[in-house]
Design a protein around this nucleic acid. Structure first.
Lengths: 137, 137
DNA sequence: ATTGTTATTGCACCTGGTTGCAATTATATC
DNA sequence: GATATAATTGCAACCAGGTGCAATAACAAT
């Protein structure tokens, strides 16, 4: 549970709300939507305000404990121990596919080379059609 | 002004609000944020409701008259006559760089091949650091 | 255990974007 | 030009996410 250690080292307070949020993200393998996190938190600790939750998530992201990605309709979060990877999200059925990070490096290099642009390729979410959905039309 | 023709063909009504919005997008070379469009519309026609504007933009997008992309903080729109291309947006200075569509085709092919995923590579907005900003830290 | 300091919480309110619905208006037909 | 009808508007309310601020609570020092 390195998150707690990180928070402590930075002189941040280990409040019950914060610990609970860290726990939830830690226990979930894979990613959680903001909505899911809010639901889980409030199930265990009814009074917690959503702004507390959003602030905690931002904080954890800033200290590298979680990764935050946007899907086009909201945000998803996953524990940094899951490692860097991207997601392919089917716009029809909503299915998500984990996708290897390396696939994006040639493009990253190309953008460097052609535009001198240092593209931020952490946690990309690509939408499109998955195998099943493209065959069923 | 093919937009108007398209709307007419589909049996849609050419209301003054709609015409104004079409005009504004047509006259702007390059892209406009939702905010800019709302400001321009309401400058020329004060009463127009934002929901009318958003609905018209969605409509125009559905009929292929404009492209809508999300930047991570809101949406941008551009006339389809500008053609397909992507944008590189500097997360520091906000500068946007037009970027050729072809750069993404190898990645698209790779996602097809490895994951059977038909990625939707219309109008991508990539964030990162532009040349100037990466040199000035 | 009490106190002081400072981070954190909850609250109330704001933002951009979206939606259901009743009132309005563009167009087709006469 | 008047009328019918279906699309469109404006409204009011809603949603996710974010923010300023006063009240609260975690931790450190005594």
């Amino acid at each position: 549970m390195s998150c707690v250690k990180t928070l402590k080292e930075k002189g941040l307070k280990l409040t019950p709300q914060r610990m609970l949020i860290v726990d939830i993200i830690h226990e979930a393998r894979g990613h959680l939507t903001a909505e899911e996190i809010i639901r889980h938190v409030q199930a265990k600790m009814p009074g917690v305000n959503k702004s507390t939750i959003y602030r905690t998530l931002d904080l954890l992201e800033n200290y590298g404990c979680v990764y935050k990605s946007e899907t086009g309709e909201g945000f998803i979060y996953h524990h940094s121990e899951e490692g860097h990877h991207h997601h392919l999200v089917c716009s029809k059925c909503g299915r998500t596919i984990k996708c290897d990070e390396d696939l994006f490096t040639p493009l990253k290099d190309l953008l460097e080379e052609k535009y001198n642009f240092n593209a931020d390729f952490k946690h990309i979410v690509m939408s499109g059609l998955c195998e099943k959905c493209r065959n069923s039309n």
